[in-house]
C-alpha cells in the first residue's frame, strides 16, 4: 500500500506507453527517435521500481545511448529520402495489425489475470507473497551488481562467453555488410592507375 510507489509506477507507465505510441505514430522519424529515447529511459525507471538498479543503468547505457545513436546514424545515412509520406502503410495488413495486437492484448490480459479475477488480489498467480522488506533493503543498500556478476561468472559463464563470440560475430558481420562492394573500392584505384 505504498502510495508513492504506485504513483511513480503509474506516472512512468503512462509516459512509457505514450512514448512508445509516439515511436509508432509520430509523423517524422526524428521525432520517433526522440520519443524512443524517452521510452527507453522510462523503461529504466520501471527497472528501478523493480529493484533492478544494474539493469536500469545498463538499459540507459545500451538502449538510450547506444541503440539510439545507431538509429540516428541510420536516419542520417538515409536522410535524403522525404520522410513525411513514410508514415503508416495504408494496406490491409494495417487493419489486421490492429486486430491482432488488440486480440493479443486481450488474450494475454485474460491469461495473466487468470480470467480477470486476479486483478482483485494483491499479486498474480506466479507469486502470492511480496518480496520481504529485509531482502529489498539489502538490495537497495548493496545493489544487485554483485549478485548479477556472481551469476554471470559462475552459473552463466558459458552463455556469457558465447555472448561475447556473438557480439564479435555481429561486429564483423556489420562491417562486412555495411562496407562498400569490392568493385566500388577497386574502381577508384584502377582509375588512378589509368590516369597515370
Amino acid at each position: 500500500m505504498d502510495i508513492i510507489y504506485n504513483l511513480f509506477f503509474y506516472a512512468i507507465a503512462f509516459v512509457l506507453v505514450i512514448a512508445a505510441l509516439g515511436v509508432v505514430f509520430l509523423p517524422r522519424i526524428v521525432y520517433s527517435a526522440v520519443s524512443m529515447i524517452l521510452a527507453f529511459i522510462s523503461v529504466a525507471g520501471i527497472f528501478v521500481l523493480l529493484n533492478a538498479d544494474f539493469v536500469a543503468i545498463a538499459q540507459i547505457i545500451i538502449y538510450a545511448v547506444g541503440i539510439t545513436i545507431v538509429m540516428i546514424f541510420a536516419i542520417m545515412l538515409t536522410g535524403r529520402v522525404s520522410e513525411k509520406k513514410l508514415w503508416i502503410a495504408f494496406a490491409p495488413r494495417t487493419l489486421f495489425a490492429f486486430g491482432i495486437s488488440g486480440a493479443f492484448f486481450v488474450a494475454v490480459l485474460f491469461a495473466v489475470t487468470n480470467g480477470f479475477k486476479l486483478l482483485l488480489r494483491e499479486s498474480s498467480i506466479f507469486s502470492t507473497t511480496l518480496p520481504s522488506i529485509e531482502i529489498i533493503e539489502t538490495l537497495q543498500t548493496e545493489g544487485t551488481t554483485g549478485i548479477i556478476g556472481k551469476a554471470l561468472f559462475t552459473k552463466y559463464v558459458l552463455p556469457f562467453e558465447i555472448l561475447s563470440l556473438l557480439l564479435l560475430a555481429a561486429i564483423l558481420g556489420a562491417v562486412v555488410m555495411a562496407k562498400k562492394d569490392r568493385d566500388n573500392l577497386i574502381n577508384p584505384t584502377t582509375k588512378l592507375i589509368e590516369e597515370d
Binding site: 504506485n6 507507465a13 495486437s101 492484448f105
Partner: peptide, 26 residues
C-alpha cells in the same frame, strides 16, 4: 501495483511493438 500490473505493462508495450513493426512504412 503487483506483478500483474508489470505484466500488463509489458503486454501493452509488446502490442505497440507489433503494431509498429507491421504498420510502419519506414
Amino acid at each position: 501495483v503487483g506483478l500483474t500490473h508489470y505484466l500488463i505493462l509489458g503486454t501493452i508495450l509488446f502490442c505497440i511493438g507489433i503494431l509498429g513493426l507491421i504498420i510502419s512504412r519506414n
